[in-house]
């Protein structure tokens, strides 16, 4: 018969695994919602909302590359209408959201999920080529 502590360890491991899976599921849902908000704002031309969905570093990059405030800059960027969310990969505090016509990268901040990069197309053996990105 196994010692009593084995049962306790198994219980702790089970709780950690279940809570870990729950956390990933919650993050996936929240990241999907943030992606959809970004896409809706982009499709309807609500650039103030689009800029609020961007990470600080990405917003700054848009302003720097266009030489305009974010809202105006985003209207000039060629980020495609992504369409529906097809697939979301969640690893820790990073997400790749694959849409029907686009791919987004998001990161978790204290204010929630923010878009790090959008308008991304895959490159063989290289990072995605993105229309807007931070850093």
């Amino acid at each position: 018969m196994l010692p009593r502590w084995c049962g306790r360890v198994a219980a702790v491991v089970a709780v950690v695994m279940v809570s870990g899976c729950g956390a990933v599921s919650e993050r996936r849902d929240a990241a999907t919602a943030a992606t959809e908000r970004f896409e809706q704002a982009l499709a309807s031309g609500q650039y103030a909302e689009v800029c609020r969905a961007l990470a600080d570093v990405t917003r700054q990059e848009v302003e720097q590359s266009t030489g305009s405030p974010c809202e105006q800059g985003m209207s000039q960027e060629k980020v495609p209408d992504g369409g529906r969310v097809v697939h979301v990969d969640v690893y820790g505090r990073q997400v790749r959201a694959v849409l029907a016509e686009d791919t987004l990268f998001l990161s978790l901040f204290p204010a929630g999920w923010k878009v790090m990069a959008a308008g991304c197309t895959p490159q063989p053996e290289q990072p995605y080529q993105c229309e807007i990105k931070g850093g």
């Binding site: 690893y91 990268f105 990069a117 991304c120 990105k133």
Partner: peptide
């Protein structure tokens, strides 16, 4: 795998 993929996503690469 998870740590590597987190880094991949930070670098805009596929997991």
């Amino acid at each position: 795998t998870a740590a590597y993929n987190e880094q991949q996503l930070r670098q805009l690469q596929a997991p």
